[in-house]
Simulated scan of single mutants.
Amino acid sequence: MPFISKRVLGAVVLALALPLAATACGGGSGGGDTIVIGTKFDQPGLGLKNPDGTMSGFDVDVAKYVAQQLGYSEDKIEWKESPSAQRETLIQNGQVEFIAATYSITDSRKEKISFAGPYLVTGQSLLVREDNTDITGEASLQNNKKLCSVSGSTPAQRIKDKYPGVQLQQYDTYSACVEALKNGAVDAVTTDEVILAGYAAQTPGAFKLVGGTFSEERYGIGLKKGDTELQKKINDAIVKMETDGAWKAAWDKNLGPAGLPAPTPPKIDQT
């Protein structure tokens, strides 16, 4: 009997040890672990946290695709709100794996972090009410028109520098600018075309984009400076997304309702 008891005890110990060993071997390319991704929570069509807690938008769909290629299914993603002024700090502190949040690639930012991409090229544009006929581009704002942008933003500064005849109103958020446009407090809103397209798509028939683009912004995915291995993996994922049709599908779903045709995906910057 003692011999049998030892066998039974050994089997029990082995049975308990196996799942523990399997758990310890997990991880690696995402098996069982989560990944923290930064994006905007307040930009419809790009990065938006919905009332039910789900995330939607073009940036969100790009980030989901990249995460999938890295080995993380959608339910393994933890989303981290990444306001513009906090993005570099979140990356440098290791609070996020990467950020996709209308993140323009600039030389000054590349001193602090690395970028994959770009996955989209856009530019500054104008949003007006659907029935507006006298604003056709940035030059037509000179006639004392009231224009709204966000305090301290590049679009606001560009208008100040180039068009002193514009009455520039600066608010804290673009959603506040859009509300002012809706109620007639301002004549137009300016920022990157895709951001404006997201707001237009959110309220079909209320607004329209005019004047094309008058700057160039290259959106990239921000990650820790010098992490060339992750940078290459993300670049490979972006290329795959563009070639298999998922990139255009994401654009059509999120920004197509604004009447903005899908642009040609940009060439990846390998530097």
Rank of each mutant, 00 (worst) to 15 (best):
Y72I: 04
A258G: 05
Y163T: 12
G47P: 05
A17P: 02
P265I: 11
F115S: 06
T133Q: 13
L147M: 12
F207M: 10
T89I: 12
G57I: 00
A197C: 06
I238W: 03
L70D: 06
L90R: 03
F41A: 11
I159D: 01
A85M: 12
N183G: 02
E74T: 10
K6Q: 08
G256T: 08
G184C: 09
Y72S: 00
T39Y: 02
P164S: 13
A15E: 04
A188M: 11
A67F: 04
Y219L: 14
D269V: 02
E193N: 12
A116I: 06
L223R: 02
T271M: 05
G222E: 04
A21R: 03
G32L: 09
G53C: 03
S175N: 14
M1I: 09
E88N: 14
P266I: 01
W247A: 02
W79C: 03
G57N: 03
V8T: 09
A139Q: 15
F58C: 00
T203D: 13
T136Y: 10
S56P: 01
K225F: 09
A200G: 08
A24Q: 13
D252F: 02
D187R: 06
G226R: 04
A250R: 01
A176K: 14
A201R: 08
D107V: 11
G137I: 06
L9D: 06
S108D: 14
I268K: 02
A206Y: 09
G57V: 01
K76D: 03
L16E: 03
I268G: 01
E179N: 13
V12S: 05
A15W: 12
R158G: 04
N144M: 10
D42Q: 08
G222D: 01
K110A: 12
I221Q: 08
K225V: 10
P257C: 04
P83G: 08
A67K: 01
S5K: 13
A185Q: 15
E216W: 03
T23W: 14
K146M: 08
E78P: 00
G137K: 08
F98V: 02
P118T: 07
L120K: 04
D52S: 08
K233F: 05
A156N: 11
G256N: 05
E229N: 11
T154W: 09
K267C: 03
A116E: 05
A201E: 04
T173R: 13
K76E: 12
T271P: 01
